[in-house]
Each structure stands twice: as C-alpha cells, then as structure tokens.
Write a protein that binds this DNA or RNA. Structure first.
Lengths: 232, 232
DNA sequence: AAAGCGGGCGACCGAACGTTCGGTAGGAGC
DNA sequence: GCTCCTACCGAACGTTCGGTCGCCCGCTTT
C-alpha cells in the first residue's frame, strides 16, 4: 500500500506554521501543537526531533524555496531594472500568498539558539537571498540606470515594504495581487530613479509552494474541542 | 528630599523594553528581568503588578507618545501633501530613534490577552493613530492632489516602509536620519503621484522621548555576571 | 530609643514546560 | 502463529514559569 509517509508530518508542519505565525514560537507549546493535530505531546516526538528542529526545518525549506524561485525568475532577465522589478514583485507575492510561512521565516530567527548549526545555516541562506538584491542594485548603479543615495538604505526600505505585505494582504481585499505587485514595482523603480518602463512582474507559477501553508482566510486548528484561554 | 520615586521602576522598564525587543515578550521571564536590574524575581513585583501589565504599560505610553507627537506636528500644517510628508518622516524618525520601544509597540500586540481591557485599549490607540494617515490620504485624494489605486494598500505599504526602519537603522550607518526621512518622503509622495515639492520633514525635537529607550548601539543588560546560555 | 515603613530577599506554590520512556494496538512479512 | 515495525499513548522526568508570602534590613520620624 501507499505508505503516505509524511501525512502526519505534514499536518504537524501545517499546524506549527500557523501557531508559530499567530502566537510566536516561544508562546507555542508542543502540547498546543499536539492538540491542533489531535495527538498527545508525546506523539509529536515520533515525527519531530525537537521543537527547535521543527522551527529550523520550516525556516530552511521556506528560505530555500524563496532562493530557488528567485534564481529561476531572474535567470532569463538581464537588465538591472527588470531584475529589480522581479525581485520586488516576487518577494511581495510570496509574502501575500504564504503569509504564515513568511512571518515565521522573517520573524523567528531570534528563536534559533545563537551559534547553533541551524542558526548559522539560516543566516547563510538569508544572506544568499539578499545577495540577489545587492547585485541588482549595484549593477543598476554601475550601469548608470539607477541613482540612489545609499544602496543599503534603498534595499532595506524596499525589502521592508515587500515583506510587510504578509501582515495586511487579504485576497478578498480591494486590490488584486497583480495590482499590488505592479504598484510596488512602480514605487521601487521610482525610489531608484529609474524611468518608468513597461512593468515587469513575476510569473506567479514560478513562486515557491509551501505544502504546509494554510488557506488564506480563517483557519481554525482546533479539532473538536474549544481551546483553553491560555491564561498564563 | 526628592523621593526619586520611579528610579528602580525606570530601570525595570529600560531592561524590559530591551529584553522584550530582543527575545520577545514570551521568551523573556521575570527572572531574566530581575537579573538585568540586579534583583530577584520577587523584587520585581514590588514595582510591577504583573508581567502583562508591564508590557501593557510600555505599549500604552509608547503609543500615546506617538499620537501626541503626531498631533503636535500636524497641527500647523494644512496641505495633505505636507501632512503626509510629516507622517512619513515622523514615523520613520521615531522608529529610527527608539527602535526597541517601537519593536515592542509594533510586534507584541499578540502577547496581550485578547479581549482584555489592556488589549482593547492598545488597539483603540493604534486605530487613533492610523486615523491620521487615513485622513491625510483621503484629503489628498478628495482634493485631487493624490492619485492612488487603493488608499488602504498605499497606507499600509508606506507604513510598513517606515516601521521597518527600526530593524535596520544605525546612527553610524551610511545615511543620516535626515537623509533617510527625506528619501522616504520622496518615495511616499511618488507613491501617491504627488508632484515633488519642497521637502517637508518632521522637527525631531517634537518627537516623543521614551525615558526607558536604551542608547542605540550595544547595550548590555548584564550587571556583573555572565548570562546563562538560555538553553531550553 | 522606639516605632513605622518601603524595598528587597529567600523560600515556596501550583502549573506548565520540553522531553523521555515503557508499553500497546494493528498491520505486514515469513 | 510469530515476529517485526510504525504510530501513538499514559505517565512521568527535571526544570522553569508567573506569582505569593513572610521576614528583615536600613532609613525616617517621633
């Protein structure tokens, strides 16, 4: 028979991403996790080495997915302005489409034990991703297409704008994802004083797909019983 | 004699803002707090009603300070473009100058018990602040000065850009705070298609001053002994 | 000198934490 | 029929959590 190997593991990851994004890693207990998937806390440990290893797994796969998707998107694209446009629209789209995963990815780095192998690995992955942005900005400046006061400032400001999307975007809001991306690309190109051009946005089908990302709207992890008030 | 009433209370708040910003509220224990100010956990409770009340106090004062400063800044200013410029530069400057306080203010709302009086109060304060942004944008659109696809989208994108500043700004970086503010105002006005104008930025002396905000660079809370590795 | 008092300490509480362990139900392979 | 193996549970481990209680020290007031 089909072993359906990681079915339970996937359900655990789905619940973990949701709870970590909602309450934060430190405020989520293994027992919370078990309750969300209809298991005892002991059962969780048959699928997960430790709470921190679970977080590290989620963050590694998320970060690698983003890097791989970015590499694919940027491959056929030469001009710095186009590359910057793709970086902006893809980062925005990933944060809009996978808000829970990206919230954990962006905000829980501090929950990994500093100096641990997992911590260092995630930092290296994050640096590898940011290198794409640094390169695009530096190329545009070297080419004379971009005029920026401070490349680091510009990069961090634009990335903040994109990553913030996970905090507010709703698919049933007033703007479609395509409109959001186009708008952000326009703002980004204005920020580097590049001439407004034919708008290039990312092909959404090339974006990473996280199997554990819950559906966008309301998703309630409680299986059959009400959750305790979490007084503490 | 001067009772110097809140000296210890102020030291507790300083340590709390630092630890909450660094590790998060849930990952910070009362004993961590006590260690940072050279006290036992029991001693802390002579100055603080509860851990959550301490967080609520910090958030309330921070949010009220921001609202009050914004009110003062906006008072003598009529044109929507100028008001938007002031909102952008003041929000950016507060996040650059008080990164620890603003990180707690922006990121720890979820740590307040939902439905509690404190939680509702902070939400009401946050809504009161956002009303300034909504008003400025709506006025500009009504007046015909701004052209935006979606006011909510524009507002949240610009606010994300400003609040992100607390995550990366360093006073010894490549850009001065004035340059950052001017740049962000330019980006913001471009985002609403307002004509580039004489740049209006906030008077920094009108910004709120949080007595507990630690000095910007490295600030080490350990009083005399090394900190345990925080294994758990 | 005696009394009052605020600030802090040591000891402690019940609960929850991450994690481990022995055991067991059920299906697959021989 | 017997033996594995996977998946999970009940119970407990030692530790840490937020918070309380009683006492004591050093200061002020009288």
């Amino acid at each position: 028979m089909i072993p359906q190997l990681s079915d339970t593991g996937e359900r655990i990851r789905t619940a973990a991403v949701l709870l970590f994004a909602r309450q934060g890693y430190a405020a989520t207990s293994i027992r919370d996790l078990g309750r969300a998937v209809g298991m005892t806390n002991a059962g969780i440990y048959h699928h997960v080495a430790s709470k921190e290893a679970l977080l590290a797994d989620l963050m590694r796969v998320a970060q690698q997915g983003l890097i791989e998707a970015t590499r694919r998107l940027l491959a056929p694209c030469a001009r710095p302005a186009d590359r910057l446009a793709l970086l902006i629209s893809s980062l925005t789209a990933v944060h809009a489409l996978s808000p829970m995963t990206t919230r954990v990815m962006d905000g829980e780095l501090r929950s990994l034990t500093p100096g641990s192998a997992a911590h260092d690995e995630i930092i290296a992955l994050r640096d590898a991703y940011e290198a794409h942005w640094k390169q695009a900005l530096a190329d545009g400046v070297a080419e004379g297409t971009f005029r920026v006061a401070d490349q680091k400032l510009t990069r961090l400001a634009l990335m903040s704008m994109c990553t913030g999307t996970s905090e507010w975007y709703r698919p049933d809001g007033d703007s479609t994802l395509e409109q959001v991306c186009a708008e952000f690309v326009a703002i980004g190109l204005a920020a580097v004083r590049a001439p407004a051009q034919a708008v290039v946005t990312a092909d959404l089908s090339l974006l990473p797909d996280f199997p554990w990302e819950p559906p966008h709207e309301r998703y309630d992890p409680r299986p059959d019983e009400a959750r305790r008030p979490h007084v503490r």
